[in-house]
Design a protein around this nucleic acid. Structure first.
Lengths: 111, 111
DNA sequence: ACAAAAATCTAAATATATCAAGCAAAGATA
DNA sequence: TATCTTTGCTTGATATATTTAGATTTTTGT
């Protein structure tokens, strides 16, 4: 399994960017990028991984996989979503919150 | 936009776990979980977010979104539906009906 | 081949995440 | 009521991520 560092370095080189260009584009220091590419960092923030995935045009999942955070690259994406009755209409934030609270209430009052 | 802390707390309460149970299941200390839920932590590791998304049965994307890391969630999905569809505790017919009724009530009473 | 510039890397300093211990409030139990 | 648990939280200590500054290596122009 390819390490996170090698994955990042390969991805960067594929689009011919220097560490300083990546720093410019993401705000992540080139020094830190270097440490990432040399596997000195065990648990980078989601923030950093997402920025790099975006810039390098790779799936966040592939970085998470290389970092050993997830087991498989395409985990159980649940297609059940589409079958849920509520799916048609968009919810406002307030509606969503109200429904969540209500569901919580339903489940607690049952027990 | 709902904060990461509130998102995490809502998700945890939906499946009725205590902070200490989450600590047991994930290895993340209850003290830290509390700080996460109270928005004391700005950039948690991908590791932590992924563990919680898995345990709470929510999409990692929804946590990244709540944390302000990504701009928009995966289209045509919303957090409530994710929560319900992926939840370990399945939505019963009665619950679904109750939620539908309640949503109807919310929308009508607003106008 | 040599110098200058660009690129990567190291080390020390700083910022932030994460943990261990223990506190206070709310609940259960007797 | 008094006591024992459970629960979420705060604080101080530690580990780790991330930055700043600078050293070393690699590339480029002449």
């Amino acid at each position: 399994m390819k390490s996170l560092g090698k994955t990042l370095k390969d991805s960067r080189e594929l689009i011919s960017l220097t560490l300083r260009q990546v720093e410019e584009a993401t705000g992540i220091s080139n020094a830190y990028l270097s440490q990432l590419e040399n596997d000195k960092i065990k648990k980078p923030s989601a923030n950093v991984l997402y920025k790099l995935a975006s810039l390098y045009n790779v799936e966040l999942d592939s970085l998470l996989y290389a970092a050993g955070i997830i087991e498989q690259e395409s985990p159980q994406k649940n297609k059940l979503l589409n079958t849920i009755a509520l799916s048609a209409e968009k919810l406002t934030n307030d509606e969503e919150q109200a429904l969540l609270d209500y569901l919580k209430y339903l489940r607690f009052s049952k027990k």
